[in-house]
């Protein structure tokens, strides 16, 4: 009886798949140029890449025969929330790693003490400094290595070379996480197009560069979200009806240079949802993420 009762109890709370809706967003740039259209006599080409999570990174092509200098202290990222962030981060990052070695018998040796006794200082002395814990029959020594990461205010790019600007930013209002929230925060379909001034998400990138390391010029790239569509699944399981409503409203949806189509799926019973692991949930987005290219 216990056997049967346990089986029935375990099977009584069935959980189901629930695809709640489909969302779509697209991004445009007023400065966008196709790779084929870039004239050969330009000095600088800026490639802006945005992935399906809304992460923004920039690659610079030096199209001159001279060494190009990018001044990261005067190169800015702004995502339309009013905050501008320079690519140069003066914060010194300290990465520490501790290694503890234990010994259950015999004596212990504090390497830091030895380093001090023999007059070893600097990095080696720091590396050897440690804490010795002694007991009647056991000891442990912890050594800490600290690496300091210091950002560079300038990047130098060789003639006809490529370089990343070295930082990645999250764009507010772009990506899978944003579309997931958009689906969950509305009970109605949303069909909106946006101009650069009206948009809910944008990026302004200003790059300061020079080919003589004295006179600096700037190149500005503006990117904005030009559409947001949310289509709720109205009858459980009828997901394609929701997707077809998106295509009906925006039948050039797949012609945009950058777009993201996202399916919000969860699992749960009548009371609670839980995150369905990726191995079960599979691929829940489809995207086209061409680089936005600007040049000067």
């Amino acid at each position: 009886m216990l056997f049967i009762t346990t089986a029935l109890l375990l099977s009584s709370c069935a959980t189901y798949l629930d695809v709640k809706g489909v969302a779509y967003q697209s991004i445009r740039s007023e400065n966008y140029a196709d790779t084929k259209e870039i004239p050969s006599d330009v000095s600088i080409v800026v490639y802006c890449n945005i992935d399906a999570s809304g992460l923004f990174d920039v690659t610079i092509l030096n199209n001159t025969d001279k060494v190009m200098t990018i001044d990261r202290t005067k190169t800015f990222f702004s995502d339309g929330t009013g905050n501008s962030i320079t690519y140069y981060d003066p914060t010194i990052i300290a990465n520490s790693q501790s290694v503890t070695q234990g010994n259950t018998t015999g004596g212990s040796v504090n390497l830091g003490a030895i380093a001090g006794a023999v007059g070893v200082g600097g990095a080696l002395g720091t590396a050897l400094s440690g804490v010795t814990v002694g007991g009647a029959n056991s000891t442990a020594t912890t050594n800490t290595n600290t690496t300091y990461v210091i950002d560079q205010p300038q990047i130098h790019i060789p003639p006809h070379g490529l370089s990343s600007l070295g930082r990645v930013f999250q764009i507010s209002g772009i990506g899978k996480g944003f579309l997931s929230q958009a689906i969950n925060s509305t009970s109605q379909d949303v069909n909106n197009s946006f101009t650069p001034k009206q948009t809910y998400a944008s990026v302004n990138l200003c790059v300061s560069y020079s080919t003589d390391n004295e006179t600096f010029e700037t190149i500005v790239t503006d990117i904005y979200a030009n559409s947001l569509l949310v289509s709720k699944v109205r009858t459980t399981g009828k997901v394609n009806d929701a997707l077809r409503r998106i295509y009906t409203y925006k039948n050039d949806a797949l012609s945009e240079s950058w777009y993201l189509l996202f399916f919000e799926s969860k699992a749960g019973d009548s009371n609670n949802y839980f995150e369905w692991p990726q191995e079960y949930r599979g691929n829940n987005f489809y995207s086209e993420t061409k680089s936005f290219i600007n040049y000067k």
Binding site: L17, V19, V22, G237, K238, V239, N240, A242, L243, L254, S255, L261, F263, S265, W276, Q278, E279, Y280, R281, G282, N283, N284, Y286
Partner: peptide, 23 residues
């Protein structure tokens, strides 16, 4: 895993069009 969508490319097009799988 569960497949949210498949892609369909018509003979006279180079675009793969996603269609959602009903369940």
């Amino acid at each position: 895993p569960y497949s949210h969508y498949l892609l369909a490319k018509s003979p006279n097009s180079d675009v793969k069009v996603p269609f959602a799988l009903d369940y």
